[in-house]
């Protein structure tokens, strides 16, 4: 935990960190605010969107798009250490390579806690304001989407961390991260049957926050085979472990 305290010492006075975090918070608020005020057929869309208990599923599905931003934040924080050469100095001063990885993973966990708590607060606020059913049952029956979202956020950021340690330059690492998550893996999915590619990292992670109404959608077209959030948790955690091991291996092999 001392590692996390030291990371906070570096991060808290850093303006770039707060700017990226503020963009994350504002974009999420903006989307929710906009959807609450859109009128369709003289009916506020928000009334539909914010109905409990389905709110948690819709909220985490919306939030999952912004994991990319959290990943970029992690990439910036790690590649900075390379451009300032402070990563080298820290190893000289006493950190082992495993501790370097661990320190950044703690930051990832802290950011995931932050975003999960933020979504919890958003859900409670919009649910209690707009939902017609405000009972405890409605409020908490589907709140398990939050821990699924937490695992997803951790896994996304750990993958970003791997890219940051491999590429070491912020711009290139961000491009590689987005290219992999949004282009390369979807292209691979395209060429593979669903029962295999549902275990691929991005697909398994995205299964943690399924698209609302997908069941209905699946009935209209051909059903899409994907893991349930509960089934996707174990693969997601295994991927987190794998990304951490690869990050460590990269650090161990290379000169700093």
């Amino acid at each position: 935990m001392n590692l996390l305290r030291t990371e906070f010492r570096k991060i808290f006075p850093y303006r770039t960190f707060w700017i990226i975090l503020a963009v994350y918070v504002l974009l999420l608020l903006l989307i929710l605010y906009t959807s609450s005020s859109i009128q369709i057929n003289n009916k506020a869309l928000g009334d539909e969107t914010f109905q409990l208990p389905g709110l948690w599923m819709r909220l985490t599905y919306v939030a999952h798009f912004f994991n990319l931003l959290l990943g970029i934040l992690v990439i910036v924080l790690i590649t900075d250490e390379y451009s300032f050469r402070t990563i080298r100095q820290q190893v000289i001063d006493g950190l082992s390579r495993a501790e370097v990885v661990l320190a950044k993973f703690y930051v990832v966990l802290a950011l995931a806690v932050f975003s999960t708590v933020f979504i919890l607060v958003l859900g409670l606020y919009f649910g209690l304001v707009y939902s017609s059913d405000k009972s405890m049952q409605a409020l908490f029956s589907q709140i398990d989407y939050l821990p699924y979202y937490f695992v997803q956020a951790v896994a996304y950021m750990t993958l970003a961390m791997l890219f940051a340690f491999i590429v070491r330059k912020s711009g290139l690492a961000i491009i590689a991260f987005i290219a992999y998550t949004k282009i390369v893996e979807p292209l691979i999915h395209f060429n593979l049957p669903d029962h295999i590619d549902k275990y691929f990292p991005m697909k398994a992670l995205d299964s943690l926050t399924p698209m609302p109404g997908q069941d209905l959608f699946g009935q209209l077209t051909s059903p899409i085979e994907q893991l349930s959030p509960a089934m996707a948790t174990l693969p997601a955690l295994l991927y987190v472990g794998l990304f951490l091991l690869l990050t460590y291996a990269v650090l161990k092999m290379r000169d700093l």
């Binding site: 030291t6 006075p13 303006r15 050469r85 402070t86 100095q89 006493g94």
Partner: peptide, 27 residues
């Protein structure tokens, strides 16, 4: 205690805060 090549610090941190980070690492 070692310095390798250029002095390596966080540019946006003050001298004192930079040394706090290093004091943490060095115990």
């Amino acid at each position: 205690g070692a310095i390798l090549e250029t002095p390596n610090f966080y540019p946006y941190l003050t001298a004192k805060r930079n040394l706090q980070v290093i004091a943490d690492t060095k115990g």
